[in-house]
Amino acid sequence: MSEFSSLTQVLRHSGGQIRFFDMGRRVQKISADLFEKIENQQTPYPYPYLQHAWLALMIWNPKNKDQGVAWFLKLPLDEQGFLIQAVRDDLLGRLLKNAGGILQHEETGEMPEDALKDNPFSFKPDQEKMALFHAYSTLAASQPASQYYENAQQYFAGQAGFDNWQALGFQGIADLAVRHEKGSNSSILTKAIPLLPDVPFEVLCTCLESIEPDHKLFEALCVRAEQTLTRGTANANHIAALTRGLSNGRHSDRKQAIIKNILESDYALEPEVIVSIATRCSDSLQDPALLAVFLEKLAIGKAGQAGFSRVLSDLMFLPTLRALILMQFRNGERSEALTQAIGEMFGANFN
């Protein structure tokens, strides 16, 4: 047993196929090599959310893909974003203890289902992320998509009419988004985006945040976003969904311009909109000019001081943003509202 010094070593020794997914801000893949570096404190966790790493571990038997387990772990990080070693050691000890004869699993590719159950670091993902994880996990294991996938394909292809969305399942939309590179799926989604009613479009956007859309699909999202903002009649939930749908697209001046347009509008005063930008568009906020507008709107937004402090404490945990935010805090041209919000969060003598 003592030959194992990391979770990754144990999982690899089981003979099963393993995949890691981040489940924090969005659902995204993490390579096994990167996770091993994370757990050995060779690199900070790349996607911290609320000072934790939100992880899904998927293990399946390559000889029998119906045999698989998934564990969801919420692991605390230190102030520099590194996994706390005592947490890793606790999980490793539990895995070795509960797996029992783990050496015997090497040939079967199996892992006891309860090997990491009932540990203090477990969490239950929300339904949206669970659907996306299921879509990614079946794709990774070369298993069929859910029973809702074909219905989603038919709907977004316009076969049943775009107003007939009530019977759509979220899982089917997640499967379609995750499999956007398969067959004609990307083309189907691209052509549908201008025609979709608000509700199915918003649901689609919550799935698109967890993929990297190709050029044409991203272009369709940008056009719809620009037209929606020009009309100015959408509600805050719709703008928040739009932001999420665009968030994982390629970085470009056009994308930055759309986010800037949102931030300069009254939509940015709404909690769901400003939070969607904070949690999904942190890369865009590395632009100092955009960050300055973001902070000013956050300071006067409807989320109040509690929202300001909560959002900023999360963003300042990101190494790429912490120094930039502190620079903005020390900007002599900041508004009185921002100065007051900073004082409430850090103390009136913050410097």
Score class of each variant (00 low, 15 high):
L11Y: 09
R12I: 14
H13I: 04
A32P: 05
A32N: 08
L34S: 04
N40L: 12
Y47F: 15
Y49I: 06
A53Q: 04
A53G: 05
W54K: 04
Q67A: 05
L75N: 03
L75P: 04
E79C: 06
E79A: 12
D90R: 14
K97V: 13
H105I: 05
E106D: 10
G109D: 04
E110K: 03
E113D: 11
D114P: 08
D114Q: 14
K124W: 08
D126S: 01
S146L: 07
Q147F: 06
Q153F: 08
G158P: 10
G161S: 02
D163G: 10
N164H: 11
Q166L: 13
A167Y: 09
A177D: 10
S184R: 14
S187A: 15
L189T: 00
V199Y: 02
V199I: 05
C207E: 10
S210A: 06
H215Y: 10
K216N: 12
A220H: 05
T228M: 12
R231Y: 12
T233R: 11
A236F: 00
A236W: 04
T243H: 01
R250Q: 11
H251S: 13
K255G: 12
I259G: 05
I262T: 00
L263R: 02
E270I: 12
P271K: 00
T279V: 04
T279K: 05
S284R: 08
L290Q: 12
F308T: 11
R310K: 10
D314A: 03
L315W: 09
M316L: 06
M327N: 14
Q328R: 15
T339L: 12
G343I: 03
E344Q: 14
M345S: 13
